[in-house]
């Protein structure tokens, strides 16, 4: 026998069900992500530097003091510059390379697509820590890299020490190009194959198909991947932490490493670290705005 529910009962039950379904996830999210983000902004405006928040040393509001300090620090700009280098490698290296690989596989220009895709994507799934130590040993002054170079160029002298960012950027290119390949593959597969076939039958060359059919269909994705490259650069931490720790002399530092050093290395400076994280949040939100703008302009998600 089905129980007969009155309208008011149904409404109340519905509300109760809604909150008990939604709240656990929402509270976790607020506690772990939303609140710390806001909290970090607040702390960056105070003198709080560890210990009890209440009852300890009184916490003062100090305004933009830490931001002034931050924007006067040359290491901040050095880190920011390295973040931009990573974005550059993504936009000029990973995205074109990922697109090229995806295109070759999608158009069936080679057989064994599955094999190539599986192998090229492989580096992306392995723990960044393993990758970082592996390449650190490989690029070490007495590691395998100089040895390998001497096979091709006898008398090769190890000079990576004077350009410490080059190995880091190379590893980033090596590790994540496969990710862009996968993203482009997924979106290429959404293009109606009939359009391409029709263009080919009408005598369009492979290059013409690429220029007039495929690239226009992917313009939105290309913009989104470029934004992804910027947020990816903000996320880079593990690999650099393990490979170089930001060194030598902060020359491979990025914003996240710079923040980590301020908070966890030597005497902690939490307000300054929070100011750095606020700068990163602001960049992230600017990216959200940019994504929305790009979506409206180029149409549709994906």
């Amino acid at each position: 026998m089905a129980k007969v529910l009155t309208m008011a009962d149904t409404k109340r039950e519905q509300r109760r069900a809604y909150w008990s379904l939604v709240l656990p996830g929402f509270l976790l999210y607020i506690a772990v992500m939303a609140f710390p983000t806001i909290f970090s902004v607040v702390l960056s405006l105070t003198s709080y530097n560890g210990g009890k928040l209440f009852g300890g040393r009184p916490v003062e509001m100090v305004g933009l003091k830490w931001y002034k300090r931050l924007f006067a620090d040359e290491y901040f700009y050095r880190a920011l510059k390295n973040n931009l280098w990573i974005v550059l490698v993504s936009v000029l290296g990973q995205i074109p390379l990922g697109f090229f690989l995806a295109y070759v596989l999608y158009r069936g220009l080679v057989r064994a697509r599955d094999f190539f895709q599986t192998m090229i994507y492989l580096p992306t799934v392995i723990s960044t820590v393993v990758i970082g130590i592996l390449w650190k040993s490989f690029f070490a002054p007495h590691g395998a890299f100089p040895e390998l170079m001497r096979i091709f160029r006898p008398g090769y002298e190890y000079t990576m020490g004077s350009h410490p960012m080059i190995p880091v950027l190379f590893v980033i290119l090596w590790m994540y190009s496969g990710m862009y390949m996968i993203i482009f593959m997924a979106n290429l597969q959404k293009i109606d194959n009939a359009v391409i076939e029709a263009a080919r039958i009408d005598g369009a060359s492979e290059m013409q198909v690429l220029r007039h059919v495929i690239l226009p269909a992917l313009s939105g994705v290309i913009v989104v991947t470029a934004i992804l490259a910027i947020s990816g650069s903000l996320k880079s931490f593990d690999l650099i932490y393990v490979m170089t720790g930001g060194g030598p002399a902060n020359r491979t530092s990025v914003l996240s490493i710079y923040m980590f050093d301020k908070a966890f290395k030597g005497a902690p400076n939490y307000p300054l670290a929070n100011a750095i994280s606020t700068v990163m949040v602001i960049i992230s939100f600017a990216l959200i705005g940019l994504t929305k703008f790009a979506e409206n302009k180029f149409g549709g998600r994906e």
């Binding site: 710390p36 970090s40 903000l234 996240s256 923040m259 949040v281 992230s284």
Partner: peptide, 13 residues
């Protein structure tokens, strides 16, 4: 779109 890196310090506290 929030990055994990930007909450590392407040989360630790």
């Amino acid at each position: 779109l929030l990055t994990l890196q930007s909450i590392m310090v407040p989360l630790f506290l």
